[in-house]
Design a protein around this nucleic acid. Structure first.
Lengths: 350, 350
DNA sequence: TTTGATTCCGTGCACGGTAACGGAAAAAAT
DNA sequence: ATTTTTTCCGTTACCGTGCACGGAATCAAA
């Protein structure tokens, strides 16, 4: 065997005095091999540093994994649409390698719709699943089913508390709140702060913003204990009402100079902010939605904290590919991804 | 042919009444095919939407691309060491697919050493090359040779002014200077600013910091025209002298409250800064070197602008892989990558 | 000793594509 | 009309693994 050539399964067979069939059985722990032969083969494998040829392997197995992605129905320019970009992003990487992705959507305010999407997903019998767990019990039923069919799945955005997932990709939520506070107060002039919150969707089980808020408040207590933090709830579906609420609030607390939000919907208050440009010094929100980015470019929003759900989805698909096609588990199961600070001067290349 | 099955080269052969040898010749423009047959095959290919199986193709061709990376010798914790991380990063993605990388290093202050590295690289006849062009003429000779051997190459960090490269991955330098100024002045209290500069290496042909400085100064002129910007040159190899220079400077200009640097060596002035914590309000530098990150974590440095050379290298290797193995050119030739703002509160997950 | 079950292993084809080889058919030269 | 060249195309042997199938060997049961 020539040095530069990589050892093949046949080399192993020859050197261990056995046939490639036996080597193959050893490689895949498929049994029907005596301990003696097993040890012999393993020794040779280790000696030669054998690594299987993934191309030949994939070809022989005839793999063409179909990966299902389960996310809520999304309007244009929403958070979930960002996540969708991750699919095409991943397609660019693993698409040429034969991976296909299929999208399953559900109405986030309708548990039955979620069930329906789950059923359709299961019926399609994908080779892997990417899902953002929003309905706790519903997701648990889904993952139980996936486990029983030994279909690997990864979480993104939110992590489900269980043990069967292949990987999780998301943000360190508490830290992101902390970071948000730091970005808000970086001009060191904050004395009265407004936190705008959205009436919580009763169907949604997990709400990352409560943890973000905790991080935010802890930062404020530690660094600006004298700063007053007030909350205002708005209705995301009623812009007129939102404007009124903001009017009332700033009438009552005219000293407010800094505004933050913990979800992706800072764009909801942008119209009001742009009609009252004088008073507000800094505005910080989350996520690089188009509407948010535009407000950032105009200077209405000072900074956005981006969690890049597209990257999370892409990483998830990549992890599934590595597992299904290459037989490789991800290095870490829980992957907390970077939080990017976006300002008007660095958004151009995102 | 069953619907769900992907068409193979044999399907095409059957449907066009020819053999798979002819189809293969058409697919690779290898000639020896009559126009009539060529058109027929192309029509069938289009009709069936044929896509080659990359696994089978790679297996048959026996590809195992060796990608050479050419970068300067680097001390631990330097900018170029970051770039190196991109190699292992890319190995994680394309390594299992049979890609090997080889590193060629040279002494950046010795043109002969660069020549030597180039020769060794050429002699190894790699399938692709990743290089950061520092010596203009030297790099041009290298790329000319690569072109004549039709070996594809990509640039990162700096772009060479020519037309043969497959892709370029780097930072928008001017914008990065602009961003740097914005981060430095985000507390709106800057009136006297110090820019610390390093004596330029005479061997290095391209210096991105001059463009960064232009962006920085433009921002300052536009937003803080009354702010005074002063420069101080230091010797990177003489820390004692550096400290003295800083002492002299701050004696002469005690009103200086903000400090910036445009290269990756902000860590050089960290010792002085930490001995004089009272005066300086904000410090901004470039690149996530370990030393810089530590200073950031301690709060000595306020923000770092990271260009992530590891990602650039990884993207470069990926592009070469896509081109060599999958036969796919990158979507864009010039890729300006995101600039990340790093503060002490978001560095943990980088 | 024969029969049966069990354990273990080798053979051979398939996966889809590549490219060398040789030969038939058509065109050109004699 | 025959030879030579050129053009074109089919055949075939791989590439390295996966896996079904059948058979040899071993051991226990009759």
């Amino acid at each position: 065997m020539i040095q530069s050539e990589k050892p093949t399964i046949m080399d192993i067979a020859r050197m261990s005095g056995l046939s490639k069939g036996t080597v193959d059985r050893v490689l895949h722990n498929r049994g029907e091999v005596s301990k003696k032969s097993y040890d012999k083969v393993m020794a040779v494998i280790k000696e030669l540093g054998y690594e299987p040829n993934v191309f030949a392997s994939a070809l022989a197995r005839g793999v063409s994994p179909r990966i299902a992605v389960l996310i809520p129905l999304h309007g244009p320019g929403s958070f979930w649409e960002l996540a969708l970009k991750g699919i095409s992003k991943a397609s660019g990487t693993v698409g040429p390698l034969g991976v296909e992705t299929e999208l399953f959507e559900y109405n986030p305010s309708d548990a039955a719709s979620f069930q329906d999407a789950c059923n359709r997903l299961i019926d399609s019998s994908p080779s892997g699943v990417v899902v953002a767990p929003m309905f706790g019990p519903g997701t648990q039923m889904l993952t139980a089913e996936l486990r029983s069919r030994s279909i690997p799945y990864v979480f993104f955005d939110t992590k489900q508390d269980e043990d069967g997932y292949l990987a999780y990709y998301g943000l360190p939520e508490y830290k992101s709140g902390y970071l948000c506070a730091d970005q808000l107060t970086v001009d060191r002039s904050a004395s009265e702060v407004l936190v705008v919150r959205v009436k919580r969707d009763p169907f949604r089980q997990s709400d990352p913003t409560v943890i973000r808020r905790a991080g935010f408040l802890d930062y404020m207590n530690e660094h600006y204990p004298d700063c007053i933090v007030r909350s205002l709830f708005i209705d995301p579906d009623d812009p007129v009402r939102t404007d009124q609420e903001l009017d009332y609030f700033f009438e009552a607390f005219p000293g407010t100079t800094h505004v933050a939000m913990f979800n992706s919907r800072i764009y909801l208050i942008v119209p009001w902010l742009e009609r009252h440009p004088a008073q507000i010094r800094r505005v910080v929100g989350f996520d690089n939605l188009t509407a948010n980015m535009n407000a950032l470019a105009r200077g209405t929003v000072s900074a956005l904290i981006a969690q890049h759900p597209d990257e999370q989805v892409a990483m998830g698909i990549q992890a599934l590919f590595d597992y299904i096609v290459l037989g490789k588990k991800p290095a870490r199961r829980d992957n907390f991804m970077h939080m990017d600070i976006l300002t008007r001067y660095n958004i151009e290349y995102y």
